[in-house]
Design a protein around this nucleic acid. Sequence first.
DNA 1: TTGTGTTTTATTGCCTCC
DNA 2: GGAGGCAATAAAACACAA
Length: 332
Amino acid sequence: MAGGRVYRSNTSADAGSNNLSVLLQSQRVPSSSEPLDTLFIPGSSPSPFLGILSIFFFNFILILILCDLKNDGPVSGTRSMVSFEGADRRRSYFRTFDGEEKVEEDIEEYLHRSEKKRRLTVDQVQFLEKSFEAENKLEPDRKVQLAKDLGLQSRQVAIWFQNRRARWKTKQLEKDYDSLQASYNSLKADYDNLVKETDKLKEEVVQLTDKLLLEGKEKGESELPDAKTSSQELPSEAAEGEESKFVPVVKSDYTEGVHSSVLLEGAGSSYPLEPDQSDLSQDEEDNLSKGLLHLPSCVFPKLQDIDYSDPPAGSCNFGFPLDDHAFWSWAY
DNA sequence: TTGTGTTTTATTGCCTCC
DNA sequence: GGAGGCAATAAAACACAA
């Protein structure tokens, strides 16, 4: 039984005993000091004979009623399938046997109220569980046979299987949910690791670029006089490839002593070194996909090749087009 | 003993299939 | 149209803590 709770089971005698002798034994026979004393005529002295007669009379009435019920089935509820087997549940109806009026109320209640539920015995449940494990659907023949074997109504067997299928489905959904949750957690961990790795690599690229720029700057200072003549050769060099669109724009912040980064001019994204691929030809995209960032020689020209006397204008710059005048101030 | 939460049994209404 | 399945729900039975 699912849930782990230990429920007190009915005994098989409770479930199976349906003879009247058991029924009579199950009824409390009140002593003369108990509420049945009220059956005596008020004011008169209690007569033992009348008391015994009264008890006999009420027991007789009850027997008649119960025999009638046993033959005809439950009075209330045309669809009620609760078995009338077992004295235990009858006992519950008569346990408050505290007077004539109460007896009549109980009988009335017994006749008209909806049936109380009766739990299946451990044996019955085990039998049904085994049957369910074998096949969780119930063919009519099997249902009838099970009902016969267990002393239940076929409707009860059908209901049990229905409820059991519902429980199984709930459990299955819980299992599926747990499985999906584990799967999601695993994927998320992978994704987080990849993001970290990507960030690390990007940071590395930025650092290397900075280093390259610094080296270039130092070289440029020492070879500045030659720069103008060299820069005149740039257009022809740049014309060799279409990749000149990838013009790095150095966001220089040397004056403040903080690090610089390289942006690609025209890139929609502000991410360093991230080109707007919508502007790329297929070959360019291929080049990009081959490496982290394939920059042509014209993109990072030697600093001595740059014409420092004439700051570049326009979108197509073959030297170091800087969107920050600081660099040019520094260069001059 | 009582209140509360859980499990089990049963009902109801809707849907599908034959 | 009847039988059977399912989802939603009611209600009884039960366990358990306070």
